[in-house]
Nucleic acid binder design. Sequence first.
DNA 1: TGACCGCACTCAAGCGCTTCAGTGGGAGGC
DNA 2: GCCTCCCACTGAAGCGCTTGAGTGCGGTCA
Lengths: 350, 350
Amino acid sequence: MRRRPTMKDIARRAGVSESAVSFALNDRPGVSAATRARVRRVADQLGWQPSTAARALSGEGAATVGLVLARPARTLGVESFFLQLVSGVQEALAARRLGLLFQVVEDVDAECAVHRRWWAEHRVDGLLVVDPREDDPRPALLAELGLPAVIIGAPGARPVPAGTPVSRLWADDAGAMASVVDHLHGLGHRRVVHIAGLPGLAHTRRRIDSLRTEAGRRHLTDVTSLPTDYSDAQGAEATRRVLASARPPTAIVYDNDVMAVAGLAVAAERGVSVPGDLSIVAWDDSVLCRTTHPPLTALTRDTAAFGRQAATHLTALLDGAPATDLRAALPRLTPRASTGPARGATPAAR
Amino acid sequence: MRRRPTMKDIARRAGVSESAVSFALNDRPGVSAATRARVRRVADQLGWQPSTAARALSGEGAATVGLVLARPARTLGVESFFLQLVSGVQEALAARRLGLLFQVVEDVDAECAVHRRWWAEHRVDGLLVVDPREDDPRPALLAELGLPAVIIGAPGARPVPAGTPVSRLWADDAGAMASVVDHLHGLGHRRVVHIAGLPGLAHTRRRIDSLRTEAGRRHLTDVTSLPTDYSDAQGAEATRRVLASARPPTAIVYDNDVMAVAGLAVAAERGVSVPGDLSIVAWDDSVLCRTTHPPLTALTRDTAAFGRQAATHLTALLDGAPATDLRAALPRLTPRASTGPARGATPAAR
DNA sequence: TGACCGCACTCAAGCGCTTCAGTGGGAGGC
DNA sequence: GCCTCCCACTGAAGCGCTTGAGTGCGGTCA
């Protein structure tokens, strides 16, 4: 059990005052090059690192950003999305020696409570916010607390009050949905079901709306969206229901990889051939989509890069950059064997 | 942007000194019941929360525990294991208002550097350590730093130096492996391949060893373990190799769910019927195992409970409890359709 | 009635760092 | 040769909290 070295130790060994040490180590003017070098050497030698607690207390911020995941435990731990996102976030934060404070809670209210607590406890300098909702209390809260933040997957319905350091990273769901509809329409599909995610989330609404828009543009009137909770159970359930209906769809679009795989299993169990009788598209690519049989056509996006972009922008906000809306790269459709020509259709000209 | 209320504010409003406030809010003797109540009321009213920075600085600890994941990014974000674990950890920590500082790095050396830095920066009071290795530098480091920790999945080869506040939470891989071998042997399998995880990890070694022991006990001499990096790619690769060998196994045990699914896909692609020609067992159950076709026989364990147990014990260590070795619940085998009688074998008496 | 005690509370120092107001001395200007 | 200015550095306060050493006061006991 070693004692942690402090600036006082460095000051003593280098024969200067504490303030000189502070100046030297923080690249501030006021010390000669020689002294600076000497202080640095001693600090290295002692293995000194600034105490974040002390830094935070003297107004420098906590060197930490927070991320809260508000999802019931049961829908957690399956999707590749979050760990990928976090791993990208880390990369950007580690470069700035920022820590990531992480918490999983049950719902948005609990998330707000955590944000409030972190703020009051002086724990974080900024926040990454995921899963924006249609009726989202968080932007207002962030504005009240004045905490810099990046909302990932925004814009939601609720705009961010002006003048607050809150940026939004926007995934182009409409564009992505257009590419999916293009693909399916080109293969001759006319009856499409969209098995969507949690109904309260902003991107669920956006996907549902753009499906309707894109379908209308191509004169497909027979499209439906069914919300779920993203779990394999509900994905399977919904699939079973639509396949048993009077006029089952010839293609299904799933809002995540897990449900798509579950849907594929349901098709297999009912003797529905994929892609012969039914085409399947998954939103978000992952190992899952590649290892099923047949492998699934999926919307591929670089989730880690997404996280990196969000975190990088957050560090810019912390440095005082103005808040903006930014746009993530458009996901691209990776066609695999789970989509094919609609039964009995002559493929439209591409 | 509100100013955070401090104890000074409370003191002023309640008409007492700051120390009285501190005593009142920390349930220490030295204030009358009336004053205590008044102070509490004012604190609530102001929405006061203690500044962790200030607390940490005055010797109270950072109210945070750390968790570092040392895995290359490519093997991340697929397994259900970690998010589940973390969600369990959170539950136990949230009850004590402890934060979780989380970081993903590339390898153990980087992990050690992070531990050192967190210690020097005063950021964490304790650590959760995962993926113990055969030749693990971390126990010695923890001892040097004197940081309380729980090593999850231990014991590794390297014991923890005595007198350090480091406990080990032990998963009974031998017992689990015994149940797997039992199951397969009972179905008449005599040639079994084990597609294992990262070779450096302690539990990989333990599983390999116990497979050998259990096989020996039942006079199966034809067992092999092949290490991989846990990725679907290597899982598929290894499967391809063993299926193409002169005497392919009749059963394969995979060290995680992802590789098992990948292996199943390889079997399908080569026209090997499961479970007709090949039985498959996955170590760690998840949605994946339930949604494949056929669903996979898997070793089910309550990963969230595992995390909860680890975190709960860590809080005990922080409270000064002595370090011990504890044992997690034995995983149980969930038989599904991916395992069946070995081709041409008369099942042994069960 | 005075010595003593314990209770309820205040004071001030200190945790490790930043920062602002000095301070001393050497260089430069006239 | 003296005044000024600037550079390199020091001193001390302060961030919000804990804590051990006081302080004053009402009550008990001889």
